[in-house]
Amino acid sequence: MKRNIVIASVTAAALLSGTAVAVAGTQSSSTGAPTTHTTNASGTTARASFSDAAHAALKAVPGTLDSLDRDHGARTTWDAEILGKDGKWHEVTLDGSTAKVLNQHIDRDTDAEDAAEAKALRNADISATEAARKAASSGTVTSVEFDGDRTPVWEVETVKNHKERDLNVNAQSGKVTQAPSDDGDDD
């Protein structure tokens, strides 16, 4: 119902402004989470979803996604860290609108902490995309990062109604919990 209202609203706005707009809802095969793509008159996608960016990053560098974060700098991008099938850490930057790979390189500045992270990541039962799907009911996923220090969890940031929410998804069970506050304030 909500989706139909959104489509009707976008269509009405397009008719009033004379701008051609198309909206398509799809089910992402990589996360199972629904994704919505808004296309403007020039045919360009307005914003790539988490699942779009995750799929593109893993296509560029096959392996295990360690983190994926939307960066709202001068140009919106998705920044991914991947433990490649080659055992090396890769950094991939994707366009925030199209999920097209802008840059990728091997991180040569690795240490013992990275080796421990790789081992914990390989032992995780829940992937980054599964963690994002589990947290998606709390809003739009803007960041997922693996933390294998103590109990392995995926730290997931979501945004809903302009309010950010930090969640933890247990990397073994998939249980979603509210992340502890960084500032000690329980709001």
Rank of each mutant, 00 (worst) to 15 (best):
M1D: 14
K2I: 11
K2W: 08
K2Y: 07
N4P: 00
A8T: 07
A8C: 06
S9Y: 11
V10C: 10
A12G: 00
A12V: 05
A12I: 10
A14F: 07
L16K: 04
S17T: 15
S17F: 12
A22Q: 13
A22I: 11
V23W: 06
A24Q: 09
T26M: 11
S28T: 09
S29Q: 15
S29W: 02
S30Y: 04
G32F: 03
P34A: 13
G43S: 08
A46Y: 05
A46T: 12
S49T: 07
F50L: 12
F50W: 06
F50T: 03
D52S: 07
A53N: 05
A53K: 00
A54W: 01
H55K: 11
A56D: 04
A57F: 02
A57E: 00
L58R: 00
K59D: 07
K59E: 08
A60Y: 03
V61T: 10
P62H: 05
P62F: 03
T64N: 00
S67N: 01
D71H: 03
D71V: 02
G73P: 02
W78S: 05
A80N: 01
G84F: 02
G84R: 02
G84D: 03
D86I: 10
D86L: 11
K88V: 05
W89Q: 11
W89I: 10
H90A: 07
T93E: 15
D95R: 03
S97Q: 14
S97I: 00
I106D: 09
D107A: 09
D109M: 00
E113P: 00
D114C: 02
D114R: 05
K119N: 11
K119H: 14
A120I: 01
A120C: 04
A124W: 05
A128N: 10
A128K: 10
T129R: 11
T129Q: 15
E130D: 15
E130K: 15
A131V: 11
A131S: 10
A132G: 13
K134V: 06
A136T: 10
S137F: 05
D147S: 12
D149K: 13
R150L: 13
P152A: 14
P152Y: 13
P152F: 14
V156P: 08
V156K: 03
E157F: 04
T158P: 10
V159C: 04
V159N: 08
N161P: 03
H162F: 15
R165L: 10
D166G: 02
N168H: 15
N168M: 09
N168K: 10
V169K: 00
N170F: 14
A171Y: 05
S173A: 13
K175W: 00
V176G: 10
T177P: 04
G184Y: 02
D186I: 09
D187C: 08
